[in-house]
Design a protein around this nucleic acid. Structure first.
Lengths: 217, 217
DNA sequence: CAGACTTTACCGTCCGAACAGACGGGTATT
DNA sequence: AATACCCGTCTGTTCGGACGGTAAAGTCTG
């Protein structure tokens, strides 16, 4: 392969990560695993889902194809690993955010809205991962669906919020998220803020939404 | 049929369309084209984006691969054709719906919301087409983005609606649409109706949203 | 016949996966 | 403490097959 038969994979892309030398093998292994996952999301973000090939991910992670396959036995396994990581991050960040909000009610809903204020790295990574999963095999999304169901249940029951208002928060959050994902006429930061303020106010001011509906009848 | 049993594209699924015999050649051609487009959406819906191969689409459309490529010179061309058709349908149906609504304002926004009341065939077809386009090559979505931008502009300017309320309608509509597309904890028909009613009322009752915000300050 | 339409046969490329080892840190044995 | 061994980690290569696309011959209609 290499001219000098160096035996090391060609760094190729400048991104090629610094490979730590003197570390316990196990730690180095999880580092490699993480590098692979990060390389995968980078490939999708920069070159699109169709360019997500084992070779490309391996090259960008600075690992051989065989090394890649040691950590992820198949492409499906890679996507599952991707989703697990990214959904885990999102879940914990969402909870942290909700804990930091002191509202009599709807803290989780407010956190959900806060999270899409601007496109964060975690949200973007999640979006592209879901996109990749949907492209490769729809079934890979099963565990992701379960997580969304948990969020939905928490919004519905544990948040002391009107069910409809809770669902509104989620739909608005997911809507902005979709718009960002596909770049479908995304609103400006200002417009985005205004909409989120509107919805936040609506669900915070107890009964406001219901009053609006009632007064119109 | 075939010498070695493979001469004809395998109808495989019972869907294999009836090919009309006695028609002007041109009409038959556009029929073939349409069959191919429909076959493509069916393949995506039933087997996923990754199964959208030229062979499979051709087989399901009851046409040879060469015949397929006569109508669509490449896979990209197929996706573009798919998007054009489906976005066209959606656009006209949306306009028809908006024309049928007699509201002093926000007719288009209401139509947008009405359209996602339940997952319609047109909406679903559009979603899977966009998904396929995003998976194959992001650039294919350019014209779709332009259409969404037109809708957004119409909502913002031509509808005599508060800008924020207009954007809210679109975000809610797109949100439900995303949730359906990926099957991420979709709400029940009842919940869905309630949310849409809430938003509809909000944007119809002039100033209601603003009142809510103001009264909270 | 002419041209639109359709088929058959075929090609080159790329991809996911399998595989047989190499390296080397850790651990047990002495 | 030195030695020997094991196995987790990673490498380079190979392979079968699928896929997108081409070329040219055939068929039907007008």
């Amino acid at each position: 392969m290499g001219p000098t038969g160096l035996g090391y994979p060609d760094p190729a892309m400048g991104e090629a990560a610094d490979r730590p030398r003197n570390l316990p093998v196990q730690e180095r292994a999880v580092l490699t695993r993480d590098r692979i996952l990060q390389a995968a999301t980078e490939v999708i973000k920069q070159e699109g889902v169709s360019s997500l090939t084992l070779d490309k991910v391996a090259a960008r992670a600075g690992v051989s194809k065989g090394g890649f396959l040691y950590h992820f036995g198949s492409k499906d396994a890679l996507i599952i690993g991707l989703l697990n990581q990214v959904m885990g991050v999102l879940d914990t960040e969402l909870n942290v955010l909700a804990d930091g909000i002191d509202a009599r009610q709807g803290a989780f809903a407010l956190a959900y809205l806060e999270y899409v204020q601007e496109p964060t790295k975690a949200a973007t990574d999640t979006a592209v991962s879901i996109l990749a999963a949907a492209a490769v095999d729809d079934d890979l999304l099963d565990s992701t669906r379960a997580t969304f169901q948990r969020w939905q249940d928490r919004l519905r029951h544990d948040d002391g919020l009107d069910e409809t208002e809770a669902l509104l928060a989620r739909v608005v959050g997911d809507g902005l998220w979709l718009i960002d994902l596909f770049g479908l006429a995304p609103p400006t930061a200002d417009e985005r803020r205004k909409v989120l303020d509107l919805v936040s106010t609506l669900i915070t001011d107890h009964g406001a939404a219901r009053d609006v509906v009632d007064s119109a009848e």
